[in-house]
Design a protein around this nucleic acid. Structure first.
Lengths: 210, 210
DNA sequence: ATCGTTAACTTTACACTGTTATCCTTAGCG
DNA sequence: CGCTAAGGATAACAGTGTAAAGTTAACGAT
């Protein structure tokens, strides 16, 4: 019965991920996971404080993936590209992650607050890192400054909420199916890019009144 | 025990609404509702097919309220206002509804798809009516046309997703608390209004190439 | 070699959940 | 009176997450 140390934990996590990707997070059950990996439900509590903590581990995996996707997206760009082009690429990568990993997206961004109450505060750092990438694209090539940093962070948040609204409603199947999904995403991206332009115009006028 | 016909149904609905507003939809329990109104859980099934159907009734109430808010918003405006001003007012009313009725907003727009599978298709009409109000504000004063109608519907959807993204993340408490909530809403509204301008520019160029 | 100790896991049980099948009681009506 | 149907209640099923206690095996020290 006893396996090498820590192997059960991995098996549980693997099975939880598999179940999540195949049947969604609503079907995630401690007993089902346990029987799939060949242990009892209570054994899971040896490695995870509770069901939420198990989901949180999956959430962290998701943020890790998204972070990789977005950092890779910024690195893969040529330096002389415009801020708008950079943001466009970033936004498309964000959408692609959501469309390719809807179950991850769901637990990362669409979970009920009660399930996130016990989520460790430090883990939100990785989530905030993504916002910073958006903020960096906003201020690309501009002289730095704390006031601008704050404004960029605020604008990046707004931009993210805009992208998330479209992505989450698509995943939740709340968008009229008669609308073309891809062109809606295209428009959402362009709408987000337009925010970059507006931000940079407002910033240059505000700080550099030539 | 027996009450006047149909009164128990109303009592159940009232209690469900009360419980929703006080403790959120995750705490909604058939047994709790039943004991609060003085009947057994199974009696609820005399008036509602299942728990989802009970929630759907609350959702319909929510859509009814939102519809009233938004139609009243358009009627209260003077006719000579710009499309942007109209949309600004509409967007603010949308946000106000969400902020004043977060529990309603949650079950209306943030419920998991599995809970909406059995939601009657015809009831979505009221939800679409709201989008039409947005679309009407987009094409305000413009000559009508099926092509424009379709474009407006698409743009209205995009605009809605943008507002919803901000509203839902605020309700879910996913926005950094260090950001000013009100100014974020303001920016979200202005971002949405800018979409109106872009839409009307694109439309006048496209159909009226003077 | 035997005694702790510890880790890994199971068993059992509690308090819930939505839902169904079955039964009872009462009111209205011919 | 007897029938019918509505408006309930009881009991039960199949789940859920989780806490507490019990079990078993490995290992190190006396």
């Amino acid at each position: 019965m006893s396996r090498p140390a820590g192997e059960l934990r991995r098996a549980i996590l693997d099975e939880a991920r598999k179940s999540l990707l195949e049947r969604g997070y609503t079907a995630l059950s401690m007993r089902k996971i346990a029987s799939a990996v060949g242990c009892t439900a209570t054994s899971i509590y040896l490695y995870f404080d509770n069901k939420d903590a198990l989901i949180h581990a999956l959430i962290d995996e998701g943020f890790e993936q998204l972070n990789q996707v977005l950092t890779q997206a910024t690195e893969g760009l040529e330096a002389n590209q415009s801020a708008e082009a950079r943001m466009r690429h970033l936004a498309y990568c964000y959408f692609r992650f959501g469309e390719e990993n809807p179950e991850y997206y769901e637990i990362m961004f669409m979970l009920h607050p009660t399930m996130m109450e016990r989520y460790p505060a430090e883990n939100y750092r990785r989530a905030r890192r993504n916002l910073e990438l958006f903020a960096e694209a906003l201020t690309l090539g501009m002289p730095e400054g704390t006031a601008r940093q704050i404004a960029a962070k605020s604008a990046a948040t707004l931009l993210w909420t805009s992208l998330h609204g479209c992505m989450s409603l698509l995943i939740a199947q709340r968008i009229d199916v008669r609308l073309d999904r891809r062109s809606l995403v295209d428009e959402a991206v362009e709408h987000a890019v337009s925010l970059v332009t507006r931000f940079r115009q407002a910033e240059t006028i505000g700080s550099d009144p030539s």
